[in-house]
Every structure is written in C-alpha cells, then in structure tokens.
C-alpha cells in the first residue's frame, strides 16, 4: 500500500503537540496544545486540571477571524471558557483512554453555544435519549463530525472541519435528526 506524507498534521506523533482552533464567544485562538503522549480529547477530559497549556498562540477577533491581532509564545486556556474546538484530524478528537463501542450510528446533530450554531454528525449506539448524551457520557466535550459552525452575530463567519469538540457546559440547545 502506498502512503502519502503530509507536510504536517494535527496528529501528535513523536512531537506531543496538536495544532487546533479554539473558539470562545469573542475570539479564535489558533494554538498548539502540548498533549505529550495523550490525545487532545483525553487532555480535555482530564479533570485534574482546568487549564490547557498552549504554545504559539495566534489570536483573532471573531468578527474578523482571518486577521491575527496578537501572538504569544506561551499561555493557558481555561477549559470551561472554550465554546468549541476545531481540529483538522478526527483522530485527536477521539479518546485513546476510553473504550469505544463499534457499530455506532451517525445522526445529524445541531447545537448552539454562545454566539455559534453548529451542525454536523454525531455517533451514538443504542436507544437515543438526547439528555443521555449530556449526562451519561463522562467526557466534557462532545465530538461532532463533518461539522460546520456559523456565528450568530456575523453569519458570514463560518468554520468547517472534520471534527469539532463542543464544550457540553456551553451547549444551550441540542437537537438530533434532520431539521424539519
């Protein structure tokens, strides 16, 4: 089987770093997270710390997310303040430490967080009760695949990616199934 190398991916590999876009109500932070030998999903789910260690932080305001208004070499991000995280690889959004059940079904999902509406696909197995997603899953962040997020105040500001991790504590409404 032939393989194609990429210039870079968000996969940690030997570097222990993941590049991701972090969104809050007002800002986009493009930064590198130090995850060491873990995956980002596991670092986010680690309840021993409320912070993420970031390096090479590039800050943009949400109304003009292409423009970089400030850069810093080091910083800490408060996990609870993140609305969602956009990744370029599905891998980093899945846990290495938790058991995954195969044969999950993929369901359309729509959520809102402050300033953003996000839709995509959500994977689930068994009988679906929406509140179960929020209560029985122990992870703090909900993975949404093939995701598109639209800013409610500036609808031209959109972000798309193979996976976003949405902070469950920031979710205002969650809807499963196609829009009617």
């Amino acid at each position: 089987m032939s393989t194609v190398r990429r210039i870079s991916t968000s996969s940690t590999g030997a570097t222990g770093r993941v590049v991701a876009d972090f969104f809050t109500t007002s800002y986009r932070f493009s930064a590198t997270v130090l995850v060491y030998k873990r995956r980002l999903a596991d670092v986010l789910g680690d309840r021993m710390t409320d912070y993420l260690d970031l390096v090479d932080i590039y800050i943009s305001r949400i109304n003009n997310p292409g423009e970089i208004v400030a850069t810093y070499q080091k910083g800490s991000l408060v996990k609870d303040e993140v609305d969602f995280i956009l990744l370029s690889s599905e891998l980093e959004g899945t846990s290495k430490e938790r058991f995954y059940v195969p044969n999950r079904v993929s369901l359309p999902i729509f959520v809102t967080v402050p300033s953003f509406e996000i839709h995509g696909k959500f994977q689930w197995m068994g009988d679906l009760e929406i509140k179960k997603i929020m209560t029985t899953e122990t992870q703090k962040f909900l993975p949404i695949l093939d995701a598109k997020s639209i800013n409610a105040h500036f609808p031209k500001v959109t972000f798309e990616g193979p996976i976003v991790l949405v902070n469950k504590s920031k979710i205002e409404v969650i809807c499963i199934g196609d829009a009617s």
Partner: peptide, 16 residues
Amino acid sequence: MFSARFQPIDKQTALD
C-alpha cells in the same frame, strides 16, 4: 503561504 489554519477566510486573508 501554507498553514495549519485551514479555513476559507484564512486563504482569503493570505491572498489579500
């Protein structure tokens, strides 16, 4: 230009 920021707005900013 090439970057880990991969949104269309990032491309537009680079072209601008």
